[in-house]
């Protein structure tokens, strides 16, 4: 019976947002426009996406205001949960996003700069809405955490940082392997599997999705709880329904 009623693995399209429009960075550079976020979000919900992530890469205050309006429109029209990340550094930022209808927020650089922020957010809003995103890549065999969209290396070790993040009250970790992001060569399953076994909160795999088999692998070998991808979904290379059917064929629990 336990097998019959299992929490499903989640498929999460990620939409990079700049000034209210969707963009996707390939290896964090070269931005390609992939449409209106609200229209895309609604489509994804109808196609069977389990959740959505919006990553705001707007650099200006005005751009960020536009994003807040977009969050409200998404909340109005979309009937699945969504996370908003990018440039969030205070309780006030989070309060505004949650009040606009976001279900969760994702923090990254601000948590590295001031780890207490994780405690403050989970105390005030509950750990269920605090996702900590971690960008890391291997340097001399060690997974090193990077800041600011992956542009600045830190001295933090991925696994130590992830443990600290959990202890401070994060509800979930979104791990992006910079070595895999944009390559379409598969997810960083070795690191993911280690994260999943060392931690007791859900892990979202990000970076490297290219084929359906990559998703099968990240759930089976990477022990990920959810998998996030952008371009394979945005450009129709993988249909979510086909993907989920294939996952089910591989005995991976999904919502269909």
């Amino acid at each position: 019976m336990a097998d019959q009623y299992m929490l499903t693995k989640r498929i999460i399209p990620c939409l990079d947002i700049k000034n209210g429009r969707t963009v996707k960075g390939v290896n964090f550079v070269n931005l390609i426009d992939a449409g209106d976020p609200v229209v895309l979000a609604k489509q994804y919900a109808e196609k069977g996406a389990d959740e959505l992530v919006f990553l705001d890469i707007s650099a200006t205050l005005e751009g960020r205001k536009t994003t807040l309006e977009m969050v409200l429109r998404v909340a109005e029209q979309v009937n699945i949960p969504f996370t908003v990340g990018g440039g969030i550094s205070s309780i006030e930022d989070v309060d505004l996003l949650l009040k606009s209808g976001a279900d969760k927020v994702s923090i990254n650089s601000s948590a590295i700069k001031r780890p207490e922020l994780i405690n403050e957010l989970s105390d005030k809003f509950g750990s269920q809405c605090v996702v900590v995103a971690i960008d890391a890549k291997q340097i001399n065999g060690k997974w090193m955490v990077h800041l600011a969209g992956g542009s600045i290396p830190t001295t933090l070790d991925l696994f130590e940082w992830a443990k600290e993040v959990e202890t401070r009250g994060a509800g979930e970790i979104l791990f992006t392997s910079m070595d895999h992001d944009g390559t379409k060569d598969g997810f960083a399953n070795e690191a993911l599997s280690r994260l999943s076994s060392e931690l007791n909160i859900p892990i979202i795999a990000s970076g490297g999705a290219g084929t359906v088999q990559h998703f099968v692998d990240t759930f089976q070998k990477g022990k990920s709880d959810a998998a996030l991808a952008a371009s394979v979904f945005h450009f129709g290379e993988i249909e979510i329904k086909d993907l989920k059917e294939e996952l089910r064929t591989n005995n991976i629990e999904v919502r269909l």
């Binding site: 009623y5 929490l7 693995k9 389990d50 007791n200 859900p202």
Partner: peptide, 13 residues
């Protein structure tokens, strides 16, 4: 219990 990941997050029946 800690036999499962906490929080439960996602879709279940």
């Amino acid at each position: 219990s800690n036999k499962v990941k906490v929080p439960q997050m996602g879709w279940n029946t």
